[in-house]
Design a protein around this nucleic acid. Structure first.
Lengths: 246, 246
DNA sequence: CGTTGGGTTGATCGACCTCAATAAAAGTGG
DNA sequence: CCACTTTTATTGAGGTCGATCAACCCAACG
C-alpha cells in the first residue's frame, strides 16, 4: 500500500478506506488470530467471505448500540474499545492489537465503541456470514471459544486492577501487560509503544489524565522507565513486575 | 436431602457432601444452563458423565492456581468467585447463581477461587470428559461460547462500574443487577436476596465494608430500599435504576 | 453466657480528583 | 517554511470521596 493513499469515509460516518479481497497467505498475524484454527484449503475458503479494510487514525470502526453488522480481525495498528455512560464518563474496556478479534460479544448490537488509534488494517467479515461459518467449522468455533475464554480471564484480571490496586500499581500493571501483548506481535522488548493518549490510559485504569501523567513522570524520575516519543522504555523491569504482581 | 445431613470433606480440603448420579430430567434450571443446548436423548447421555454434588455453606469448590479438574453447573445456592493478591487484598469477580456455569476459563489452572455462600448443589463434570464432549457436540460448544460471550460482556459492564462509578452508583448497580439475575431464577420481584456479606459486596465493587454499610443505610433512610434479613426490598426502583443506568 | 462473626456508626485521614496554568507537540493553511 | 490553532501533556494548589481506625451492637452458637 502506498503511504500517500488516504483513508476515506465508507458508510454513514465510518472512515474506512480502500478495501480489497483477503490475502491470508501473506498475513503477518495469521498464527495469532482465529485463523490459526484453519487448514490451508479452508483459508482459501474464508478468503471469499472477508475483505481487508483500511481505517484512518481516529476514525470509527463501529459504535456502541449500533446494529453489529461485521466482525473484524486486526492485522495492523491499534484500536481503542470503550463504553460511554449517559453523562459522558468513559471506560476503556480494552485496546485491540494486531491478531485481535473484534466481535466476540455475538450480540445484535455492539456492546462498545471501537476507533482507530493509528492507521489500522483489518479483515472484515459480515457477522451473519461469520456466524454461519462457525456452524460449519467446529474447529473455528472451538478456537473462537478459547479466545473468548482467554478474554474473559483478562477482563477478570482487569477487575482486580480496577477494584483493588493503587494508581502506581495500575500504571505498572498496564505497562507490563502491554509489553507482554506487544511481545506476541513484535517480539520481546523493553520498548513499549503507547499509541493511546494519557486520557485513554486513565479511562482504562479508572484514573484521571493528571494522575497518569504524574505516575509516569514519577517512574521516570526514579529511573524505572524512560518516556520516549510515542511510548516508554522499561529500565527497572523487576520493579515494574513486582508492582504488577498478581 | 435431609436438612440434618452434613456436608463432608471430599479430597484434600474441599467440603463436598453426598454425591449421586445426575437427574437432569427433574432439573429446575435445565433451560437456563448449558444443558438447554441438548436434546432429551443427549441429556440421557451426559447423565453418565456427571454427578450431583452438595457443598456446605462456606466450603470451597475449588481454589485459584489449583489444577482445574472439574467444571460445574450450579443447580441451587450461591457461590462467591474471587481472586487474591499476594498481600491479601481480594477482588470478587462474580457471584454464581443457579444455572451458572463454572469453568469457562478452559485453562489448566483455576484462575479464581470459588466457595459456597449458602448450601450449594451442582452438577460436576470432569474437565477432560466435558472438553471431549464439546468436541463431539458442536451445539453444546456453541451454547457454551454464547454463555462465555455474555459473561465477557458482563465483565466489561463491571469494568465500567469499578472504574467510573461512585460508591452510591456502585451499590445501586449491584442491587439492580442482582435483582435481574434472580428474576431469571425465581421470577421478577422487588425482594433481592443477598446471600453474601457486606465485605463480599465491597470486594466486588471495589469498596470497603464500611462504605457498603453506609450506602445501604443511606438508601434505607431515604426510603429507596428496606433492609430485611438476608437481603433488601426495593422501594424506589426508579431511583435505583436511574443511578444504575448504563 | 462468653465468644465470634457480621453489621453499623463516628471521627479523622489521605490518595486521588478538580481546577487552573503552562508547556510541548502536532496539525493546518497561507 | 512559518504563524496560528488545536490537541496533548505536565505541574501545582487545594478539595473531597471513600478509606482507615476505633468503638459498639447484635444474633448465632457452642
Amino acid at each position: 500500500m502506498s503511504s500517500l493513499e488516504t483513508a476515506v469515509q465508507v458508510g454513514s460516518h465510518h472512515a474506512c478506506g480502500h478495501t480489497s479481497v483477503l490475502e491470508c497467505h501473506h498475513c503477518q498475524v495469521r498464527n495469532l488470530a482465529v485463523c490459526s484454527a484453519l487448514e490451508t484449503d479452508e483459508i482459501d475458503e474464508i478468503n471469499r467471505y472477508g475483505r481487508t479494510i483500511n481505517v484512518a487514525a481516529k476514525a470509527t470502526l463501529f459504535e456502541q448500540d449500533e446494529t453489529a453488522e461485521s466482525v473484524f480481525n486486526i492485522t495492523s495498528g491499534a484500536v481503542r474499545l470503550y463504553k460511554l455512560l449517559p453523562d459522558g464518563r468513559r471506560q476503556v474496556v480494552g485496546f485491540a492489537l494486531p491478531g485481535d478479534f473484534l466481535g466476540l460479544a455475538m450480540s445484535e448490537q455492539n456492546v462498545f465503541s471501537a476507533d482507530a488509534l493509528s492507521h489500522v488494517t483489518a479483515c472484515q467479515f459480515s457477522r451473519n456470514a461469520f456466524s454461519e461459518l462457525l456452524d460449519r467449522k467446529p474447529k473455528l468455533l472451538r478456537r473462537l471459544h478459547d479466545i473468548a475464554s482467554h478474554e474473559l480471564s483478562l477482563a477478570q484480571d482487569q477487575m482486580v486492577i480496577l477494584g483493588r490496586r493503587t494508581a502506581e500499581e495500575k500504571i505498572a500493571s498496564f505497562l507490563i501487560g502491554l509489553r507482554n501483548r506487544w511481545a506476541k506481535v513484535n517480539g520481546a522488548s523493553v520498548h513499549v509503544p503507547l499509541p493511546m493518549t494519557r486520557q485513554d490510559i486513565g479511562d482504562f485504569l479508572g484514573l484521571t489524565v493528571e494522575t497518569v501523567s504524574r505516575m509516569l513522570t514519577r517512574f521516570a524520575r526514579d529511573k524505572a522507565i524512560v518516556i520516549v516519543p510515542d511510548g516508554v522504555r522499561l529500565l527497572d523491569v523487576d520493579r515494574m513486575e513486582r508492582l504488577a504482581a498478581s
